[in-house]
Design a protein around this nucleic acid. Sequence first.
DNA 1: GAGTGGTCTAGACCACACG
DNA 2: GTGTGGTCTAGACCACTCT
Lengths: 240, 240
Amino acid sequence: MTPLYLKIYHQIKSDIQQNVYPANAFLPSENDLVAQFHTSRDTIRKALAKLDKEGLIQKRRGKGSQVIAHQLRHFPISGLTSFHELKLLQHFQVVTELPVFETITVTADDQEVTLFPIGTPLYHIVRVRIIDNIHSVIDEDYIRADLIPDLTPAIAKQSIYAYIENELHLSVAFAEKTITAELVTARDRDLLIGLPTDENRLIQVESQVHLSDTTYFQHTIARHRPDQFQFNEFARRQTT
Amino acid sequence: MTPLYLKIYHQIKSDIQQNVYPANAFLPSENDLVAQFHTSRDTIRKALAKLDKEGLIQKRRGKGSQVIAHQLRHFPISGLTSFHELKLLQHFQVVTELPVFETITVTADDQEVTLFPIGTPLYHIVRVRIIDNIHSVIDEDYIRADLIPDLTPAIAKQSIYAYIENELHLSVAFAEKTITAELVTARDRDLLIGLPTDENRLIQVESQVHLSDTTYFQHTIARHRPDQFQFNEFARRQTT
DNA sequence: GAGTGGTCTAGACCACACG
DNA sequence: GTGTGGTCTAGACCACTCT
């Protein structure tokens, strides 16, 4: 059963996108929405809080909730959305290659890279994403094999997250991400066919991903061809 | 007057950082906290929601609120925090140069770059940040001069945000950010003294910043030396 | 003064985890 | 069953904006 506040959130979000509430217009007041949806103010406020967090509206005391006019029609790449889901939103032709699919056990050497304890059984998966015929990204994954069993190359070529969430019914909760610019290695040049020779760095997005019971189950290193990389974010000023 | 839920948030956050609640431990239940702080459950839940959003705790239905053990002791560079504030958190020696400080009026050419309408009066400010003796960042700002009057080079060398918020009492609300890797220009080489010649790109963080009445007042382009760039983020999986 | 969103209260029922 | 967090209600008072 979907919570009521989420239904209201989706309704209002849809109305914003359909221009029922155009950019810079004000939504009905919270009291009006209470009457309109036959619910309590707290429920309305939860729906509006979610719209606010995502950057669709700006709330102002004494005035109302105003629809934000976005400069760039961005879909945030932020917020832990997987590659597969991202590509569905867009209309790119994507081919995935799978140069590495193996199971390993963490050694002292691996430990520093993966941040998993020695002895942990892992899947080690390397995928190359070819987007509209350009070798764009190298995705390297280390995934705990005891928690995520029976991974197959077929699943890796589709969506690992869909398998984790829909088949295993595990809940992915949060990740710590770090974006840096790293020097190109010989292996990078092997995998990213067509990378111009004067490019000396790739943009790296490194993530440690955790389940909702806070167990750390996945380490991902995505290395992007620099001219194909873009990261968008909607950020609110901290209130502290 | 600070709202009660923020006081409770700060108290619990401090307790987490002081290891009163160590990593992986559970906080007292919401009902216990209600008794402890002599308040209502909703107020406690607001405080916990803020801790959850910032990645300090993970809430789990039927179990409790667990302190997240962070792999990297990160302070998120995310969330619209200004350069000046960031540097205060750390202990770097920072020198700011000010090669450009001028007022301009937007022309047809500028419009595409700044996204401001033709005729808008702007401050155009370029700052170079030298961190621990390394020329690390070029900050280029376009700021609406009608909204943010009387800017001076002295203010630009300190913190423009402190001036906006503490002197003008305006409220910075949100920004749209885009991170890309851009080709180095001749001007970049002039300003970023010491940039290695084999580096062909800078990491660019472009932001459109808005006030709480949603007016767009600042366009910022920060270009980082690639070996000095790092961007950290705590991201939760979208519930949609 | 009227209307707006921000905070706070006190209570209810539900879904889930665990013994 | 007991305890946990998740949702929802109905009401109150406050701070702010605008006329």
